[in-house]
Amino acid sequence: MAAPFETSFAQALLGTEPALPPGLAAHTAAVPARRFAVYRNNVLASLGAALARRYPVIERLVGGEFFAAMARQFVIRHPPRSPLLAQYGEEFADFIAAFEPARELPYLADVARLEAARTRAYHAEDAMPLGADGFAALDAGALGDIRLQLHPSAAILRSPFPIVTIWAMNSGELELRPIETGQSEDALVVRPHMDVEVRALPPGGAAFLRSLADGLPLRDAIGVALADHAGFDLTGNLAGLIGSGVVRAILSPAARTS
């Protein structure tokens, strides 16, 4: 429970209009409005810079000036709840989605979700992914019954926009060239080892992985994926499942009793 002065100080700090907290004094001035304005600006600017570090592609997409001003609005509405700046800005994508001046960039919020997922993956628990040999050792007759535990860094995102392509082009992974936003893309973000990887998922792949993440046995996950997209390619998705390092462990091993 903050004291009344601290509460009014915080309110003045994050108010939309500069205002001096009641009772604030300095040895140089009875009413240190200018000093407080400098302090306030440093708070907003440094949090905005933290946001730019976490969302570099968003900053590149809209430009530095637009980003700085947008970040300022965000900081005022969403001050940090944790001292860990690396986790700051979780609500940024939702903020962007409702942010009127960015409304003509409808893909922007989903790209921000992708960037947020990358940071979470970077700071997620380290874990060795299950290798191909772990899958090869399974009893072929009971493969449909296996349940998987996904890697702790894994995130699956679905978007009606080509978020992986937009992200890749603006993070230096792909050459920048004109694209159309009509193409939807689902993304898998995972850090199997040291590097965070962003992959575009094939049709039905996101439904497949989410079902597995929810604990469905493989057979049911395949059913969900086929219902999601008739063009679901089982072999290709299994190869991706194994090769991407998104699986940490087999939770229910293939039964040996049958």
């Binding site: 200018r34 600006n41 809209v62």
Partner: peptide, 26 residues
């Protein structure tokens, strides 16, 4: 970057996105 600067804006919004978004067609 914010050191020793005071507020340069209130809540007014005049900024225009000038990044690479122009290459993305909606």
């Amino acid at each position: 970057a914010g050191t020793a600067k005071t507020d340069y804006q209130g809540d007014a919004w005049k900024y225009v996105a000038k990044g690479t978004c122009a290459s993305i067609k909606t």
